[in-house]
Structures are given as C-alpha cells and as structure tokens.
Design a binder for these strands. Sequence first.
DNA 1: GCAAGATAGTTTGTCATCAAAATATTTGTC
DNA 2: GACAAATATTTTGATGACAAACTATCTTGC
Lengths: 163, 163
Amino acid sequence: MAKASAKPKLDLVKRDDSNALIPEAFRNVLGYHLRVAQEASFQAFSAAADKADLKPGWYSILTILAEYGELTPSDLSRVCGRDRSTLTATLKGLSIRGLIERHQNPEDQRSYSVRLTEEGRKMQRRLHAIAHQHDQRLDEIVGADKDVVIAVLARIVNALGTS
Amino acid sequence: MAKASAKPKLDLVKRDDSNALIPEAFRNVLGYHLRVAQEASFQAFSAAADKADLKPGWYSILTILAEYGELTPSDLSRVCGRDRSTLTATLKGLSIRGLIERHQNPEDQRSYSVRLTEEGRKMQRRLHAIAHQHDQRLDEIVGADKDVVIAVLARIVNALGTS
DNA sequence: GCAAGATAGTTTGTCATCAAAATATTTGTC
DNA sequence: GACAAATATTTTGATGACAAACTATCTTGC
C-alpha cells in the first residue's frame, strides 16, 4: 500500500543543499558546528589512513615523539592533551609493533620514557604524508579565513581551560 | 642529539601562556586545533551537565525531537548525523527513564517512531538551559568572528561530505 | 506468488576518551 | 628510620562513535 497517506515521514533533503538538515535549534550554535566539523575532519583523515592500513590514532603520538625525542607517558599526555590513561593502550600497541622503545628511568623505578625506533620514524613519515594531504584539503576549503579560525579555536581552548 | 644527561625531563610550561604546549608540527594545522577546541567545548558542556546530574548525550536527541515532533530512529540518525547503531543504547535509556515514547508503525512492523513525553520535554528544557549558557560563553570568547567561523565550519562539513 | 534484494533496527567488536580507583615507588616530615 | 603524602603508571568502568554482521520485515521483479 501507499505509505504516502499515513505518515509525515520527514522528507529528508539531500546533503548537497548546504545545511539543509541542520535542526533550527542548532543553526546558530557554535558548539554544534564545532563538533560536526571536527567529526567530519577526523573521519576524512581516518579514511585516508585506513586506506593505507595505518592507524590514525598513532599519528599524534608518533609526531610528538619525532619532535620531542624522548618523553615519559605523563609528559606525552600533557603535550598531546589526552589523559594519561588514554595513552596506555596505544603505547602498548606501538611498543608491540616495534614503533617505539621504552627505557626504564634508572633514577625512578616508577617511570620510563619512550622514543621512536627507526621503524617508528618511518611510520611517522608515512602518516605525516597523509595528514599533510588532509590538511591541505582543509586549507583549500577554509581559504583566507584560516588564520582567523585558528586564532578563534586557540582562544576557545585557552578560555575553557584546556581541561 | 645528546640526550646524555640524566634528566631531560621536559620543563613543561604552564597553560596560561597561550599555546605554550602546542607541538611545532601542529601549530599551523587546522585539524589539530579543530579537535582540541571541540574537545574543550564538549568537556565544558559535559561538566556543566554533570553538575546538574544530566546526561550531555541526551541533549541533541531530545532537542531534535522537540523540534521535529516524531521521528524514526533512522531519521533521527540522519538529522543528528550519528550512525543508527549509535542511537540504540541512548534511545533505550531515554525510554526506560520515561523521557520518550516508542510508537509502533502499524504499516511497517520493522519500524517505530519516538516522541518526547512530558517528562522528556521538561528534561529537554533543563538541558537546553545549560547548553544555552555554554554557548553564550563560547559566543563571548569568539566575539565578532562567530559568523565567519560558523560559515567555515559548515563549509568543511559540506566539502568533506558529512560522513 | 515467490525468491531476491532492500530497508529498519539491533548486536557485536573496535577504538578513543575521561575519571576514579588501585599499585608501586619516591619524597618529605618528624 | 618510619610513616604520610605525592607522583607515575595501569586498571577498570562509563560514554559515545563507527562499521560490519545479523534478524525481521517489506518491496520488487519476474
């Protein structure tokens, strides 16, 4: 039978019409757009990494280690802005796959530091190539507004206390 | 690259110095700032909701229902931009707590729709008050750039294909 | 009218995130 | 020197996200 009669059924408009689907209540809400944009961006990066059989979640850690050389999990957590407990599993994975080495701190039995292995450095470069491509795509989309947007985002982070 | 001495130890600068801790490699990367800002924003909202003993995850669903009246889980998923499977648990929780009602579709045994109960409407208003406060805080931080930023974020979502 | 395929919803498995509790070790106080 | 407090890491448990596989039902093609 015809379903047309009974149900309103929400004639959901396709996506090509910009913000066709955004609920009225959210249209002017920064937090909403922030969330949606960040998820779209992450998904795009994730898809690109997956296609190359790489773990998107490794990128930031490997890159920070490439820049800082050697860090404890705690310092790494502060630099990348994640809770320490979040890193445990990832570091274990990276270690198992030989991408990082752990070095016990001889002066403190509780603590160790991690650094990239040669393999890890290679992996970082491969992920960086993908990330760079992704960010160029974002740059194209954002165009001249990039600096303003970055400044605003940084302001948000600072004002809300990094948390 | 002399890491020779005992304590490299990263003298991590405190947060009050804007972007003191941002790794060089990310400083000009939009995706990074997007992620960090979104997480800070979500954390702030989450904390405010928690303080009032409310679930932050309920807000978007309740608000969409308040606006659209009655939706199937699939339509709800399209409107809020989450995968259908993501909604299952939340809808169950909302239903158990009496905030939404499920109505079987008499024309399609597979399908049902959900709508707010009076309790749900009250909860939506309570959460909305918190969300509104949060967004005003964001507005203050962002100031005159708000429209530009929202336009840019929407552009990102559209260009990256929502997904 | 029936088999094949599409669609609605749920389940399961993976991952990332946080916070709070648990462990182990170091530091500081008396 | 012993005991309390702080610190480094891991564990556990809750959320929320996705994708892929699964069940049930509806629609289509022939």
